[in-house]
Design a protein around this nucleic acid. Structure first.
Lengths: 341, 341
DNA sequence: CTGTTAGCGCTTTCAT
DNA sequence: ATGAAAGCGCTAACAG
């Protein structure tokens, strides 16, 4: 497909009667090349339509200037802001990105990790699938000393920095907010607790209850898939309960919105009968009626910091090596939880 | 960072006392290698943790087995389904993906195209930014005979196949649906008409009006950015009109949903005062109240077909070379447009 | 400041 | 069915 007549540094060298190494250095802005020489070379290279061949370069330098990103899904609002943040920092620093999604399956995650390894990424950013139980699939990276940074859905590992928000505290805040609104019988809608973020939110939830003198009732913990069908299932579960909850903390906005819809269809008033708070500050939270209270999640910051941390390490600009970096969250109060309006 | 002791085909060759070429062939499942030899080599390679070095391979073969994808945005529901479709077909056929977004800016699009070219993708899939006026930035691809396929937001070009839905027909259907619901004074909310999809929808809109004996009124064409602020601006424009519209066809769901919210805040009843139909069948259309009528847009199919078309061409499995492939759409009727319910 | 030279790891023609 | 050898385009010692 490609034309055979690619312009190489040899062509430039020959035409300008200098050596290929000088051309290479000039093109890479090496300090030890005279300014005029550089200009001459750059000008000619541009004229000839020279294109840097990164394969040859990578092969030689044993680096790729590429960062791998693996996320559970790409198509949530939160994740798309994270990716945007990563992309910004990476491209500013001259790194390319390879992005893939595990679709919440550890099997695909393992495959993705292997692909990233074969692509010889210089470093890896990863947020784990919901059913990932251990991180031995990262061993091939860690054994070779290739940097791996976790974000959002993390595990504890001595060699890997994690970028997170304080999900415990956020879960605590969300629950406390419902309690302050007069809720006494609060349910929690969440995914498998295997996943760090959900487990932390759940623990924050429990602690808030305890601190308020409310007993935690296991039948009010709904473990379901937090997608757009979540509300349906949750309402089904609620209908089987003698005492209905008067407040629900949903661990993400997708499920919270679905929940509000289904609660309304089932005849519950939100927030009068049941108050709802979500998690993520997804734009949809501003369209549902009543507008959804939620926890804002700084996706952009998370992406930028994750990428910056990785790149600093790649370039040995290590500041202090922290094991966990915790970002701030905020609670956003809207109609769905404001019972005393 | 990387360990120095990468296992190469030379290491394997030496250990097994055969030539590197045989190892290379065996690893690539070349037919002219004895089965036992292959097995021996594969076994040893696995044991030694051999990893194929695609840079060396790419350098030598002058192919990358990589497809580039450029989209205006990654974070819409529609686009994420397209990407999912592309990824499925590409990975099934052994191709990697490089994905980037133009963020609706032709400047960034040009930069992305150049990056893709430097990355030496084997082929390119592209959907254009809203302000792209011509496609001369693709010349460096076309001049070298590298395949480019357009999807969704397309231009006409003799060398490039376009994968689209029939936006004219869809715009016609959407408008006709409003007319059938009794609307006589219909507005159209759309982006810059420079963009193929919006222009076609607009023309369908106009034709439907004409066919129904309704005069097209330029003051009912609202050219604005179709984001979550669109509704606000549209309602502002509506408030300046003597005769309010009784139906609005919005060219995407994001703007339609924002519009419904703002119409309601402004005291209009939807659909009684103003009926609304959107475009895309974004999940949010099922949450807004009343639920949004819309046009379903087969993102997954579009992605799969685009990738398949490109890969077939890369591998010279060209069936008939079509210039445009048109996918079917469907009209989805929900509450927001159903005035006679 | 610039040139010489030797690979990086792989594929592939040509030869056997 | 296998091997020898050349070279993809670039970089980086080392030498001057």
């Amino acid at each position: 497909m490609r034309n055979k007549t690619e312009v190489t540094i040899y062509d430039i060298a020959e035409a300008l009667n200098i050596s290929p190494s000088t051309v290479s250095r000039a093109l890479n802005d090496h300090p030890a090349i005279r300014k005029e020489t550089k200009e001459k070379i750059n000008k000619y290279a541009r004229e000839m339509g020279y294109q840097h061949n990164s394969f040859a370069s990578n092969l030689r330098r044993k680096r790729t200037n590429t960062i791998g990103v693996i996320a559970p899904r790409l198509d949530s609002y939160f994740m798309s802001t994270v990716i945007a943040g990563i992309e910004k920092v990476a491209s500013e620093s001259g790194y390319n990105l390879i992005i893939s999604q595990s679709l919440e399956s550890v099997t695909k995650e393992v495959a993705n990790v292997n692909t990233m390894f074969k692509s010889r990424v210089d470093g890896l950013l990863i947020s784990f699938a919901g059913d990932t139980e251990d991180i031995s699939h990262l061993d091939l990276f860690l054994r070779k000393g290739i940097s791996v940074i976790f974000f959002d859905r993390v595990f504890q590992h001595p060699d890997c920095t994690s970028i997170v928000i304080d999900n415990f505290k956020a879960g605590y805040s969300a629950t406390t907010h419902l309690i302050e609104q007069g809720c006494k019988h609060i349910a929690h809608l969440t995914n498998s607790l295997q996943c760090s973020v959900y487990n932390d939110r759940f623990n924050g939830f429990k602690k808030a209850l305890t601190d308020a003198g409310i007993e935690y009732k296991p039948e009010l913990l709904f473990n379901i898939r937090l997608n757009d069908k979540a509300g349906e299932e949750a309402v089904k579960k609620i209908s089987t309960l003698h005492q209905k909850p008067d407040g629900i903390f949903a661990a993400n906005d997708t499920s919270a919105v679905s929940l509000i819809c289904n609660l309304k269809s089932a005849g519950f008033k939100v927030p009068q009968d049941i108050a709802v708070i979500g998690f993520n500050d997804d734009p949809i939270s501003r369209y549902i009626e009543p507008n959804l209270s939620t926890i804002s999640y700084p996706g952009n910051d998370m992406g930028e910091i994750a990428a910056r941390t990785l790149i600093d390490r790649l370039e040995n600009k290590q500041t202090e090596k922290k094991n966990t970096i915790i970002l701030n969250h905020e609670i956003i109060m809207r109609g769905s939880s404001l019972r005393k309006l």
